[in-house]
Design a protein around this nucleic acid. Structure first.
Lengths: 339, 339
DNA sequence: ATGAAAGCGCTAACAT
DNA sequence: ATGTTAGCGCTTTCAT
């Protein structure tokens, strides 16, 4: 058969056993820290393992144990810095706990998600972190794999995320407290859970005020993709209107907010003097753009750790439970009272 | 023994064989597209496979074949948008070819790289894409796994990257062609291969000119981390000096360049009127900052595809070969002739 | 063309 | 406490 090993000749547990003069069972026990091995034997086995550089074959372990200390992570698009940072943190936590991470991108295609999960299941992952695409309304989990959904809620699965709605509320409140009344909102794609939540938070604060001031909310709310270009185009639309211009805009992502900065720059609108801007997410970049972006920051480390720990801890997952973490308003340079 | 399957009861190849009234060998042959199966039998087996939703167990395949259609990717830091995009593209290509990707972050710790490789090897990956940390000078490959090094060269391993030096040369040439003479360079960390290459490209163009103009290169070249903050601080130093200010700066990463924009904004230095800026990498964001960043763009798709294909194609890897792709100058809004 | 059977390397149940 | 052994699910050789 000649399996053409790229690695010359792996040393197996049997080599170790022979060399150490014990049985494979004993070696296995030593490797797995089973208590019932005498110190003497343990020492010699450990010694031989070191000499031979023995490393248990994960495929064999996996076949035997039905699991292999691997988590799957499905992310819509790593070019979104929020997701990239989330990914980084999930991998970090997983590594700390001795797990590896299989990464798959769904490319914002809802259709591919179930296929990706199926592939992950075939590969015997112990659990899957799914950051659903904007379009995913529901997700089948045929294999019944341990699954936690992050950031974008999907009914019927354990959920970990920031409190999008409260975060948006805080952002709107802040703008209002500064004295703004004509506040626009650049929301996300209409089909996106996150977009709806953040918009709802915004409207929690603004609905009454729009009514009071006899303003039509429809002209102050606009949907756009969550990325830079989406924000830029939405801002173009908002700032080019004929009616009274908004004095502030709440963008539902930092990327969008940066796009707003871009559009304002193009139109020679001074920020924050002529226009206040608040973003959402708290990505690294928000602190570097000019001017520095005020934003509702998500607790990414908390979210990543929670999702990872849920999967790794063997406790049964409760499909009805949501783990929601509060956002923090980070006040920087893009907001001021209206002129 | 009771292996407590999280997945109720996987259907195995034996279930399929029984149901189809053939032997497991035949089923295996069908699954693997082996020619010597009659069409009649093939059809019924395929039928049963579909009915039962049979999926071969990768752990068993892996154990038997010694491989499992998985690639490992080690990246210093996903928060660097260049790496994030690279990762995304590698996964995409791998997926197209039926491979999965194990992701590991080295967090810029050179020490952890070999450990990460060892872990990947244990998991039977068919190959590893390593984007070395800045500090890595050499990397041991004890298991002899298929390894390709990307972006930052390490002697003794196949290498895939952009032509950093030529790219930097093009950037400097462009600035010179605009009429600039006092051109500063924000280089990367001194220990970084990439930083040295780009600096070398810069000096290829500038060494003579510095001499001619009786300028001390040392005051025009400064090392800094590749990130936003590194660029900002370096620019602070460059722009606060007492001598004649540079009229242009070449930053060795787009992140740094964006940091420069930030610093210039803080000091009310107009870009490009009072200061021209060129970056390096061609990240998405470069097109969104204000003003839009002129940059030497790396061909990320080419790099990602090349590295992935090298690993997946079973051809022997040549440790001495480098695959170098040219950069492209993307002219946008941050450059103008000196005042 | 197909079936039977031998393992791949490991863990855990069962003996002792 | 330790050795022996039966598989985990699959691929592939060897017969037929």
């Amino acid at each position: 058969m000649n399996i053409e090993p790229s690695v010359k000749q792996r040393t197996t547990i049997r080599d170790v056993a022979r060399q150490a003069g014990v049985s494979v069972g004993t070696v296995s026990r030593v490797v797995n820290g089973h208590p019932s091995v005498t110190d003497a034997k343990r020492r010699v086995v450990l010694q031989v393992i070191a000499e031979l550089g023995f490393q248990p074959d994960t495929a064999a372990q996996s076949l035997r144990r039905g699991t292999n200390r691997t988590l799957g992570v499905i992310i819509p698009d790593l070019r979104n810095p929020f997701f990239a940072e989330l990914m980084q943190r999930i991998e970090l936590r997983a590594k700390e706990r001795g797990y590896s991470v299989l990464f798959a991108s769904s490319d914002e295609q809802a259709e591919s998600e179930e296929e990706l999960i199926a592939n992950l299941v075939r590969r015997k992952v112990e659990g899957v972190v799914l950051v659903p695409s904007n379009r995913a309304e529901t997700i089948a989990n045929p294999g019944g794999v341990r699954l936690v959904v992050v950031d974008r809620h999907i009914a019927g699965h354990p959920f970990v995320a920031a409190d999008h709605r409260a975060g948006a509320r805080a952002a709107a409140d802040y703008l209002v407290s500064l004295g703004h009344r004509r506040i626009a909102c650049i929301s996300g794609p209409e089909r996106s859970f996150v977009a709806r939540e953040r918009l709802a938070g915004f409207m929690d604060v603004m609905a009454d005020r729009f009514a009071e001031a006899d303003l039509d909310p429809a002209t102050y709310v606009i949907s756009a993709p969550f990325d830079y270009e989406g924000g830029r185009q939405a801002a173009e639309a908002l700032l080019s209107g004929t009616g009274p211009r908004p004095t502030a805009v709440f963008a539902c992502s930092d990327q969008q907010a940066i796009g707003v900065l871009r559009a304002a720059f193009d139109r020679r609108i001074a920020i924050p003097d002529q226009l206040s801007v608040v973003g959402f997410d708290g990505i690294l970049l928000a602190d570097l753009v000019a001017p520095r972006l005020t934003t509702a920051a998500q607790p990414m480390a908390l979210i990543a750790n929670c999702a990872t720990d849920l999967l790794i801890g063997g406790e049964p997952l409760d499909n009805a439970t949501s783990h929601i973490f509060p956002c923090t308003m980070v006040l920087r340079e893009t907001c001021a009272p209206p002129a």
